[in-house]
Amino acid sequence: MMMRKVPQPGWNLEYLMFVFTRLSGLAMFILAIVGVAMALIMGARTQMDLGTLMRWTFFQNPNHVLDSNIPDVTAGWANGFWQIMEMLVIFLAATHGFNGLRVILDDYIHSIFWQYFLRVILFILWVFAIILGIYVILGS
């Protein structure tokens, strides 16, 4: 009996990133909902305004936006739970975003050399953004 090697569809980079984009989108919805709920719980005492609420929903870090004031930052946000939440946000958002940039560039750049060149640059920027984000999270 002749066995023929059938190339397996899927499980290449494109398919993995397709799935990852959907899943990370849903995960960021959940993270934002948890963030907005906790911001409401913690900020209700201090009459938090809408802009502050929106900023603290996405990235709960005291070095983030200077004029958003939550008086008891150290009590409320600077603990391990929120640091892990921020790292998740940074990782998911950076990967989702830079993968999206790769897809957009592939649509408009036709030369293979430039495609790979820009992919390398995007990869470096991606690693750089994640390291910078984690440094800010742990350093503040």
Partner: peptide, 23 residues
């Protein structure tokens, strides 16, 4: 969707850089 993606990437990249330099 595509335009808003580019705006968000630009905004958040600068945001991370700005957090770093503020810190």
């Amino acid at each position: 969707h595509r335009i808003s993606a580019l705006v968000i990437i630009f905004f958040i990249s600068l945001h991370v850089l700005s957090s770093f330099f503020t810190l």
